[in-house]
């Protein structure tokens, strides 16, 4: 299983002059939640970790090899990323879309084999999409489309999972199954890094968190230690209250009452 190391990494966020270096090692089995206010650069960070953007300085190292020294094909066999937005310009079925996840593992001359079909079938089942497999993707609802993207990532079977807002558009039931899916990947000794807008999802499902502040150095470490009222109030510039449900802290915004 692979390990992802952020070596003095400064993400190149547009229109943000100074950047703070990240020096984090993500070990197999860890599930990381990336938290921060809108526009702080969570998506840019994930794209940088996938090798899709150049860092301003520092490097991303996959098992002792910097990503910049790897081919796109080699990166895609180990690192998978789920984007927040999907381009569906052309007609395609759900099954075809999920099958794209197998692309990094096939050579130019190969077509999809029985194993690939098996994996796609399992992924569809895991995301409760089997009944939709023949459906055109443009006919899907936002939540269904989001699950298709997750199924594609599952079929890709990367060691490093980068997921951008995995619970977008999902109802509560599917939010839970999506987060449980990520947790399962962690249990299978994969690395999971998810950007989350909901601090409570991080509190419930993540082993580690990375808090990205707009104006000061980021914090990273175990979720238990970092998810404190003071850290989070500073993060969101919002007074919060904390409660405990099933042994986990739950944060809610406090609204001034007149």
């Amino acid at each position: 299983m692979s390990q992802l190391r952020l070596d003095q990494l400064v993400v190149d966020i547009p229109y943000q002059q100074s950047g703070f270096a990240l020096d984090v090692t993500i070990e197999p089995g860890q599930v990381w939640g990336v938290l921060g206010p809108n526009g702080v650069g969570k998506t840019t960070l994930l794209h940088t970790l996938a090798g899709l953007r150049n860092a301003r300085s520092g490097q991303v190292v996959l098992d002792d090899v910097p990503l910049t020294q790897m081919s796109r094909g080699a990166i895609a066999q180990q690192i998978g990323i789920m984007f927040q937005e999907h381009q569906d310009g052309f007609p395609a079925t759900v099954a075809e879309t999920v099958m794209l996840g197998r692309h990094p593992h096939l050579s130019m001359w190969q077509s999809e084999q029985g194993d690939d079909r098996q994996l796609v079938e399992e992924a569809l089942k895991a995301l409760e999409l089997s009944y939709l497999s023949q459906r055109q993707i443009y006919q899907l609802s936002g939540g269904e489309r989001q699950r298709v993207a997750l199924a594609m990532l599952l079929a890709q079977q990367p060691d490093i999972w980068l997921v951008d807002e995995p619970t977008n558009h999902l109802d509560l039931h599917h939010q839970v199954s999506a987060m449980a899916l990520l947790q399962r990947q962690g249990k299978q000794q994969r690395c999971v890094i998810a950007s989350l807008h909901d601090v409570n999802l991080a509190s419930q499902w993540c082993t580690h968190v990375l808090l990205m502040y707009p104006d000061r150095a980021p914090l990273w470490g175990e979720a238990r230690t970092l998810l404190q009222l003071t850290n989070l109030e500073a993060l969101y510039q919002q007074p919060l209250a904390v409660a405990e449900v099933d042994g986990r802290p739950i944060f809610v915004p406090r609204v001034a009452q007149d």
Partner: peptide, 23 residues
């Protein structure tokens, strides 16, 4: 002939294609 699958992926956008291992 050997590029067909890569073109399928490219059709889903440059970013998605790059993430699936395409130059």
């Amino acid at each position: 002939f050997p590029l067909g699958r890569s073109l399928n992926v490219l059709g889903r956008g440059a970013l998605q294609a790059a993430s699936l291992g395409i130059n």
